[in-house]
Design a protein around this nucleic acid. Structure first.
Length: 1132
RNA sequence: GGAAGUAUAGCUCAAUUGGUGAGAGCAGCACCCUUAUACGGUGUCGGUUAAAGGUUCAAGUCCUUUUAUUUCCA
C-alpha cells in the first residue's frame, strides 16, 4: 500500500524524516555506502559559534548541502568534516561585554588565564543552537568530529605552516602605521576606532608650509617654475599635524588636478616668493583685489598683497620635482637621493588645503602606502640598539635628534593640566609654526576645527604611528597566486576575475600580527637584542628547546606546555646559541590564518592523518558568502600556494594528487540575504527572519526551495516570507497532489509494480512523451548541478512537475486510471507515473531532502523496486538518450498550443468547454505538420471537447498568409539594406507570396541593389481563415466551427448533468468506486438529451438507473439550461 | 575615495548571448473548469528595460558618462 495523507504538512514531514534519518543513520550510510577511492572533497568554512545563526546561514548551508548530496547521488564519497572558528575579536568582545570589563583590565582585574578560559567557554556558547539548526534545516555535516581552531593539535599545525614559511624567508618583521595611543602604549584596532565618541571635534594649529624647490635640478618644468636664477619658488602644502613636518619625506599631488604658479609676497616675512598650489584653491589664500596689483607699490605689512598667476600645469607635470627638506634635523644619503620629491597619490583632493599633501610616511597610513609605492624612504633615526625608529618616540615625544623640540610631547593634550597652565607654555605645534614663520617657510598659519580620533581609554588624541608587525611575504608568490587563480572555477566568474583577481593584482604582504590575548600565538622567540630568533614548528621541537633552556636554568626541569595559548606560552623562555634568554614575540596571529590553514590543520597534518589529508586535498568544492572573498577564500588560496613552494611535505602530496598548488578547485560565493524590501537584515531593525520559526512554520524544504529557486546563489536574495507559501502551494502542493492521485488509484488497483515493465515503445503516445521529457529533464538537471547552477535545476524541476506532469500528463491521463477493468494501457499509465515520481524525488532530493525522502520511501516501500533505504543512498537518474523523442516533444507542444488556442476561441465566442463542437480547422503549410498533429489528435479533441479536426490547404483559397522577415538570417545577407528589404518582404501580396512559395525564391530590388530572398530567409504563417473565428500563436493558426446541431446541444446538456451529479457525489462524500441510482425532478426539458446519451451518462457517473420523477422534491436543487431541477442520488 | 556586483511590470525572475511586436509566475480584475489538486484554464490590467549619449541595418543585450543600491577595501 502507498501511504495516503490528509494534507500536505512540510513541517511535520521534516520532523518525521529527521527522525527516520537519525534512527537509521542515513547520513553515515550516505558516506559509507560510497567507495572510499572515489572521494569528492568539500571543506566546511568554519562558522563562529558565538552568535546566533540567521536565515542567511540557512541559505549558505543549503548551497553547500546541495552539491554534497548531488555528488553523493553521483557515486562519490563526500565526507564533510564540520568545524568551528574559535579565535578572534568578536569572541573577545563578547567576553568583555559579559564580564563587564575592558581590554585594560586584562592582566589587572582579571588574569589572562581567566580571560582565556572565559573565551574558551564563550566560543561554544551557541553550539547547541547551531547544531540544532544544522539538523533541522537538513544540512548534512559531520558534527561529531569537527575541527576546533583552539585545540593544541590545530595550533601545532599552524605553527608548522608558519615554520615552513619562516624557513623560506617569507615570515618577517616590519611595521605598519596604525592608530596608537601613546598614553596607554597600545595600538587600536579599527573596531576600537569605530566606537561611538572616538571622533571628536578639535581645534588644531594648521600650517601651510613653503617647500622650496631646488634651483639646480633638471626637470622639464623648471624653466617655468624658476624663470631666473634668483627666483625662489615653493610648493605649498597644508597639514593639520605640524609635528609631522620634521618627518616630511615627500609631497603628494593628484595627477589630474590643475595647479598654478603664483608670484606674490610671503605674508610674514614680506619677501617675494613664487608658490605652487591647486588652481581651484587660489581664492582661499589670495584676495581678489590683490590680483595683478602693483608689485612695486607693495610695502611689508600692507593688507592687500599683490599676486599674479604666472603659469598653469597639471599635477602629472609636477611629478619628480625635488625640494629642500623643510626641517632638516635628520637626513641620510638615501633620503637625499630618493626622498623630498613630488609623488602622485590618489587620495589627494582639493577639498581642503592646497591640493598638495605633505607626506610623512611613518605617521599616516595613506602616506605610508604612497611612499612605499613610490620608493620614498622614511625619515628615521637609530635608537640605542641600532634599530630604526621614528622622530617621535613611543611616549609621543620628539627624540633628541630633533634638537629644537627634543623631549617635547607632540600633542598638547599629552601634557598635564599643570604644565599647560604654566606661564609661557606653548604647544609644540605652535612652536613649530613660529619657527617656520621666522625661517620664511610658513605661508599661512591658522587654527582649524576638524574631527580627529581619540583613544576611548585615555580620551586623548591618538597618533598614527609605525608599530612592529609580523608579515607573510605573500608578494613573493604573487604571480603564482594569479596564475593558479585562473584554474579555479568561480561561481560567479566575475568574483574570481574581478574582485578576487584585482585583489591579487594589488597584493601587499599579509600583516599577521594582532595584539590580543585569545588566539594562536606567534611561535617566534627572540633574544632581547633581537640578534637571534627561532621559529618553532612543532611541540616536539619546542620541548627540545625547553629542555635546552632548562639546562641553562631558564626553565624548570621537565617543563611541558599543556595549553599553547597565552599566557602559558609566554612563560616559555628559550636559550640562544650564545646562552641568552629568548622571549616569545608577544603577538598573536590573524584569525584568518587559522581558517585558511584548515585543509592541513583539520587533520593535524603533517603530524597525523597523512592519508586522510592526501584523500582530501585539495577541495573539489567550497562555498561561502561573497564577503569571504578577501577573507577565507584568499587565506586558503594564499597558504596553499605558498606551501606548494615552501613545504616539501605539501609538494609531495601535490605531486601525488596532481595538484598545481591550489586549496580548492571550485568555489561558489553566495550573495546576501536581505529583507523583502532589499534592506539589510538586522536585529536592531527587527526585519531579521528567524530561521527556527521559519522552518517550524513552513518546513526546511520550503525555505530551501524558495531560496534556491528564487535567485541564483550569488545574487542577493530579497527574502519574502510570502514566497515560502507560494512555493509550498505551487510546487510542493502540486507534487503532493500528483502523488495523492497516484496513491489513491494505485491502492484501489493494488498496483505494486510487480508486473514487468511495458516496453516504452508499446506505451501510448502521452506516456512516451512524459518519459521523453523526464529524460531530458534528468539530463538538464544533472548538467545544472554539475555546473553549480542549483537555481536552474530547481526551476527546471518545478516547470516539469507543474506544467507537464500535473497539468498535462495527469490531467489527460486521468480516465486511464479510473477505468475499472485492467489492461496494459492502465498498467502503462501506472508505470509511467510511478517512474516520473520516483525520478523527481531523486532529482529534487539535493534541494528538498525531506520531502524527496518521503516521496521516495513512500513509493519504494510499496513496490520494493529499488534496494535503497533512502533517496539519498540512491543513484542519480540515468539519462536514456534513446527514450528522448524530440519530434514527440514537439508535437505534444503543438497539441498544448492548439488546445490553448481552441480554449481561447471558445472563450471568445462564449461556448464553454462542456458543450461539444463539431470541428476545428487547421491550415497546413506542410505535410509534416499534418502528420504530427494526427498523432496527437485524440489528446486535442478530448482536451477541448471537439469532435474532429479538418485540415485545409491553401488550395482551397481561403487561407490568408503572412510573411515575416527572419532578421537573423537576412542580417548576414543584406546588412544595412535591411530596412528596405524588410519593408519589401512585408509588402508582398497574397499572389506574390504564393509565387514565392512555389519558386522558393523571390527577388527584392531596392535602390542600388538586388537580393535573392530564399524561403529560409522568412517565416510564412497562415494568419487568417476567411469567415471563421481564428486565433494564432507563433506559426500556429486555428479556426473553430461554432455551428451547434441539436445533437451537439443534447450532448452538452448531458455533460452539464454529469457535472451536477459528480459535484453531488463529491459533496455527499461517496467513494469514487460507489455505484448509484439517480432520480431527476422537474427535468423534462432535458429528458430527450438524457435519453439519447443514457449509456454515456451512466458510465460517467457510475449510475445503474436514471429515473425522471416529476414529483421529486427531496434532493439537490441545481440548474441546467436555465431551469431549476432536482437531483437525488442514492448509493447502491 | 578605490574595486566589484546589481538595476527589466506593483513583487520575484526570464529573454537562445546583437535579430527587431520584451516574456512567465505572484498580486489585482472578469469569466470558466475540477470523481487528485484552497489546483488549473482563458482573458484583462500593468514596461520610456534606472537616466543620458554613442556604436550598428538592428541594442534590454556592446561602449561612455551619470544616478541608485549592495559588498569588500581604505
Amino acid at each position: 500500500m502507498y501511504k495516503e495523507y490528509k494534507q500536505l504538512n512540510l513541517s511535520q514531514t521534516g520532523k518525521d524524516i529527521l527522525e527516520f534519518w537519525q534512527q537509521n543513520n542515513i547520513f553515515e550510510k550516505s558516506i559509507s555506502s560510497r567507495p572510499a577511492d572515489n572521494p569528492y572533497t568539500f571543506y566546511e568554512g568554519p562558522p563562529s559559534a558565538n552568535g546566533m545563526p540567521g536565515i542567511h546561514h540557512v541559505m549558505a548551508r543549503a548551497i553547500k548541502d546541495i552539491f554534497c548530496r548531488y555528488k553523493t547521488l553521483k557515486g562519490y564519497q563526500v565526507k564533510r568534516k564540520g568545524g568551528w572558528d574559535t579565535h578572534g575579536l568578536p569572541i573577545e568582545l563578547a567576553v568583555e561585554k559579559s564580564l563587564g570589563i575592558t581590554k585594560d583590565d586584562i592582566g589587572k582585574k582579571i588574569s589572562i588565564e581567566d580571560y582565556n578560559d572565559a573565551c574558551r567557554k564563550e566560543v561554544m556558547r551557541y553550539t547547541d543552537v547551531w547544531n540544532d539548526l544544522t539538523e533541522k534545516m537538513g544540512y548534512w555535516v559531520d558534527l561529531n568530529d569537527p575541527y576546533i581552531t583552539y585545540k593544541n593539535e590545530y595550533i601545532e599545525s599552524l605553527w608548522w605552516i608558519l615554520s615552513q614559511l619562516y624557513k623560506k624567508g617569507w615570515l618577517y618583521k616590519g611595521y605598519t602605521v596604525q592608530p596608537y595611543s601613546p598614553k596607554s602604549g597600545t595600538g587600536l584596532s579599527s573596531h576600537e576606532l569605530n566606537q561611538p565618541g572616538t571622533y571628536k571635534m578639535v581645534k588644531d594649529t594648521t600650517i601651510v608650509a613653503q617647500f622650496f624647490l631646488k634651483n639646480d635640478q633638471q626637470h622639464p618644468l623648471m624653466s617655468t617654475l624658476c624663470k631666473s636664477a634668483d627666483e625662489e619658488t615653493a610648493i605649498l602644502a597644508w597639514t593639520t599635524t605640524p609635528w609631522t613636518l620634521p618627518s616630511n619625506c615627500a609631497l603628494a599631488v593628484g595627477e589630474k588636478i590643475d595647479y598654478v604658479k603664483i608670484k606674490t609676497f610671503n605674508p610674514y616675512t614680506f619677501q617675494p616668493v613664487s608658490v605652487v598650489l591647486a588652481k581651484v584653491l587660489v581664492g582661499k589664500y589670495f584676495k581678489a583685489e590683490g590680483e595683478n596689483a602693483s608689485f612695486d607699490d607693495y610695502k611689508g605689512g600692507d593688507k592687500v598683497i599683490p599676486w599674479t598667476v604666472d603659469a598653469e600645469f597639471k599635477g602629472s607635470d609636477l611629478l619628480g620635482l625635488r625640494y629642500h627638506q623643510l626641517m632638516p634635523y635628520v637626513t641620510t644619503a638615501e633620503l637625499e637621493e630618493k626622498a623630498f620629491r613630488v609623488i602622485p597619490a590618489d587620495f589627494v583632493t582639493t577639498e581642503d588645503g592646497t591640493g598638495i599633501v605633505h607626506t610623512a610616511s611613518v605617521f599616516g597610513a595613506d602616506d605610508f602606502r604612497a611612499c612605499k609605492e613610490n620608493d620614498v624612504p622614511s625619515v628615521m633615526v637609530l635608537d640605542e640598539t641600532g634599530k630604526e625608529v621614528p622622530l617621535v618616540n613611543k611616549q609621543g615625544r620628539f627624540v633628541e635628534e630633533v634638537t629644537d623640540f627634543a623631549g617635547r610631547y607632540v600633542k598638547e593634550e599629552y601634557y598635564s593640566k599643570e604644565e599647560r597652565d604654566e606661564d609661557g607654555f606653548k604647544p609644540t605645534d605652535v612652536l613649530i609654526s613660529i619657527k617656520l614663520k621666522t625661517d620664511n617657510k610658513a605661508f599661512d598659519v591658522k587654527k582649524y576645527e576638524h574631527s580627529y580620533p581619540h583613544s576611548w581609554r585615555t580620551d586623548e588624541p591618538i597618533l598614527y604611528y609605525p608599530l612592529d608587525s609580523w608579515f607573510i611575504k605573500t608578494t613573493a608568490v604573487k604571480d603564482k597566486l594569479i596564475e593558479l587563480n585562473k584554474t579555479i572555477n568561480w561561481k560567479p566568474e566575475a568574483t574570481g576575475t574581478g574582485r578576487f583577481g584585482n585583489w591579487l593584482e594589488n597584493l601587499v604582504d599579509w600583516n599577521l600580527s594582532r595584539s590580543r590575548y585569545w588566539g594562536t600565538p606567534l611561535p617566534i622567540w627572540r633574544e632581547e637584542n633581537g640578534t637571534e630568533e627561532k621559529c618553532i614548528g612543532s611541540i616536539e621541537e619546542l620541548n627540545k628547546e625547553i629542555d635546552a633552556a632548562a639546562e641553562a636554568g631558564f626553565m624548570p626541569k621537565d617543563f611541558r606546555l599543556a595549553d599553547m595559548h597565552r599566557p602559558y606560552v609566554d612563560d616559555v623562555v628559550l636559550v640562544s646559541s650564545n646562552g641568552n634568554k629568548m622571549f616569545r614575540e608577544p603577538d598573536l596571529i590573524d584569525v584568518w590564518f587559522d581558517s585558511g590553514a584548515m585543509p592541513y590543520a583539520q587533520w593535524h597534518f603533517p603530524f597525523e592523518n597523512k592519508d586522510k589529508f592526501i584523500d582530501a586535498y585539495p577541495a573539489d568544492f567550497i562555498a561561502e558568502g561573497v564577503d569571504q572573498t578577501r577573507g577565507w577564500f584568499f587565506t586558503l588560496h594564499a597558504i596553499a600556494v605558498m606551501l606548494s613552494e615552501a613545504s616539501d611535505e605539501v609538494k609531495e602530496v601535490n605531486s601525488l594528487v596532481g595538484n598545481p598548488g591550489v586549496a580548492f578547485k571550485s568555489v561558489v560565493s553566495n550573495g546576501l540575504v536581505l529583507d523583502k524590501d532589499g534592506a539589510k537584515m538586522s536585529k536592531r531593525l527587527g526585519n531579521a527572519v528567524e530561521p527556527f520559526e521559519t522552518i517550524e512554520k513552513y518546513g526546511a524544504d520550503a525555505a530551501r526551495w524558495y531560496m534556491i529557486s528564487n535567485a541564483s546563489p550569488w545574487d542577493n536574495l530579497k527574502f519574502n516570507i510570502e514566497g515560502l507559501d507560494e512555493v509550498r502551494r505551487k510546487f510542493f502542493g502540486t507534487l503532493y497532489n500528483t502523488y495523492s492521485f497516484f496513491s489513491l488509484y494505485a491502492n484501489i488497483d493494488k498496483f505494486d509494480y510487480s508486473e514487468a515493465d511495458i516496453a516504452i515503445a508499446d506505451r501510448p503516445e502521452i506516456d512516451q512523451w512524459i518519459i521523453s521529457l523526464l529524460n531530458t529533464l534528468s539530463k538538464e538537471v544533472d548538467a545544472f548541478y554539475a555546473d553549480f547552477e542549483p537555481t536552474k535545476a530547481a526551476r527546471a524541476i518545478q516547470d516539469f512537475v507543474d506544467a507537464h506532469l500535473s497539468n498535462w500528463y495527469v490531467r489527460l491521463s486521468r480516465r486511464r486510471f479510473w477505468r475499472s477493468d485492467s489492461n496494459t494501457d492502465k498498467l502503462s499509465a501506472y508505470q509511467t507515473l510511478y517512474t516520473c515520481l520516483v525520478t523527481i524525488s531523486k532529482l529534487m532530493s539535493p534541494i528538498a531532502p525531506f520531502f524527496a525522502e518521503r516521496l521516495y520511501t513512500d513509493l519504494n516501500y510499496a513496490t520494493k523496486k529499488e534496494n535503497f533505504e533512502s533517496v539519498h543512498l540512491a543513484d542519480f537518474p540515468t539519462y536514456h538518450a534513446d527514450l528522448v523523442n524530440e519530434a514527440l516533444e514537439e508535437r505534444m507542444q503543438m497539441a498544448q498550443d492548439i488546445s490553448s488556442l481552441v480554449l481561447s476561441l471558445r472563450k471568445k465566442v462564449g461556448i464553454n468547454v462542456r458543450q461539444p463542437l463539431s470541428k476545428i480547422l487547421l491550415p497546413i503549410l506542410d505535410k509534416n505538420f499534418e502528420k504530427q498533429v494526427e498523432q496527437v489528435k485524440e489528446l486535442i479533441l478530448s482536451e477541448t471537447n471537439i469532435k474532429d479536426i479538418e485540415y485545409i490547404t491553401d488550395a482551397a483559397g481561403f487561407i490568408k498568409k503572412k510573411v515575416k522577415p527572419n532578421f537573423k538570417a537576412l542580417g548576414a545577407k543584406v546588412g544595412k539594406d535591411m530596412k528596405a528589404v524588410a519593408a519589401a518582404i512585408t509588402a508582398m501580396d497574397q499572389s506574390a507570396l504564393a509565387q514565392f512559395e512555389q519558386d522558393g525564391q523571390y527577388t527584392v530590388e531596392i535602390e542600388n541593389a538586388k537580393y535573392d530572398i530564399l524561403l529560409s530567409d522568412v517565416d510564412i504563417i497562415a494568419e487568417d481563415v476567411e469567415g471563421w473565428q481564428v486565433a494564432n500563436l507563433g506559426k500556429l493558426t486555428v479556426a473553430l466551427d461554432v455551428t451547434l446541431t441539436n445533437e451537439l446541444k443534447q450532448e452538452g446538456t448531458s455533460r452539464e448533468l454529469i457535472n451536477r451529479v459528480q459535484n453531488l457525489r463529491k459533496s455527499s462524500g461517496f467513494e469514487v468506486t460507489d455505484r448509484i441510482n439517480v432520480k431527476l425532478g422537474n427535468a423534462e426539458h432535458i429528458s430527450e438529451a438524457v435519453n439519447n446519451n443514457l449509456t454515456y451518462i451512466c458510465a460517467e457517473i457510475l449510475a445503474d438507473t436514471i429515473l425522471f420523477d416529476s414529483g421529486l422534491t427531496e434532493g439537490e436543487k441545481t440548474e441546467i439550461d436555465g431551469i431549476e431541477i432536482v437531483i437525488a442520488i442514492t448509493k447502491i
